[in-house]
């Protein structure tokens, strides 16, 4: 069995704080791996390490069997194969929706402008945002901005999509329009690793759910196993607290 992404014995600390502790994870093609856990459990840091936005202290990361944690690797080439969507959208405020989406295809993949615009418009039409193409991000709702951010990361045809709590900055009404895109991508067969607090959504899309606690995966399995029948006491406690907060 070959994996798209393999993490082996990852360790990462910020100063004296150990954020990822001997964490290992493998992601198969066309699967969605959902990371759950309390804030500060290391979910975001893990995603940022995969995208080489953070360096790791120890361990190895492989993308399609190639070690990307090698310091000699060309980080820009690695990132071209990875799409990343952030909690705070991070659209470029001085560029229109269309320019946001076509920037990387034109400058990084060296596509012609027409080709990039065509591809971007196809994506925008698919996700009902075609009429926003020439708007600036600050004229859009949070849900629309996050959908544009997802489209922007899709425009580089990533091998793997990393989604970092993409609905945490949105009000509940807007959450669904963003999650439905992710469901569509899942049915397209996109390989994804996502951190989320939306347990219902996790149940729908996850092939594997990993519960992170203190920088390590305490429990992993199908959504049914981890979310509805957790064995670990800490997982049970976490889910109980999520349940009390009305998020399950």
């Amino acid at each position: 069995m070959s994996y798209v992404l393999e993490l082996s014995h990852i360790r990462k600390s910020f100063g004296n704080e150990l954020v990822l502790n001997d964490l290992s994870l493998s992601v198969q093609e066309h699967t969605a791996t959902v990371l759950i856990g309390a804030s500060g459990s290391g979910k975001s840091t893990l995603l940022r390490c995969i995208n080489l936005l953070e360096s790791i202290d120890d361990g190895q990361i492989f993308l399609d069997g190639v070690e990307i944690s090698d310091p000699l690797i060309n980080v820009d080439e690695v990132r071209r194969k990875l799409g990343m969507v952030f909690q705070s959208f991070n659209l470029f405020p001085h560029k229109t929706v269309l320019e946001n989406i076509t920037l990387a295809p034109i400058k990084v993949q060296l596509k012609s402008k027409e080709e990039a615009v065509d591809a971007a418009m196809t994506l925008l039409k698919r996700f009902d945002l075609a009429d926003k193409a020439d708007q600036y991000p600050d004229r859009l709702s949070g849900g629309q901005q996050q959908r544009v951010a997802i489209i922007r990361s899709l425009a580089i045809n990533p091998r793997l999509l990393l989604l970092d709590e993409i609905t945490s900055a949105l009000d509940p009404v807007l959450v669904n329009e963003v999650l439905s895109i992710v469901r569509d991508l899942k049915s397209d067969g996109m390989t994804m690793v996502l951190a989320t607090h939306e347990m219902g959504f996790a149940t729908q899309v996850a092939d594997e759910v990993c519960f992170l606690e203190s920088g390590n995966i305490l429990e992993r399995g199908t959504a049914q196993e981890v979310l509805h029948n957790p064995k670990n006491l800490k997982t049970q406690d976490f889910l109980k607290r999520v349940h009390q907060a009305g998020r399950l």
């Binding site: 936005l53 990084v108 580089i156």
Partner: peptide, 9 residues
């Protein structure tokens, strides 16, 4: 971070 994650140098 957003720009670099898209592969821009």
């Amino acid at each position: 971070a957003a720009a670099r994650s898209l592969g821009l140098t």
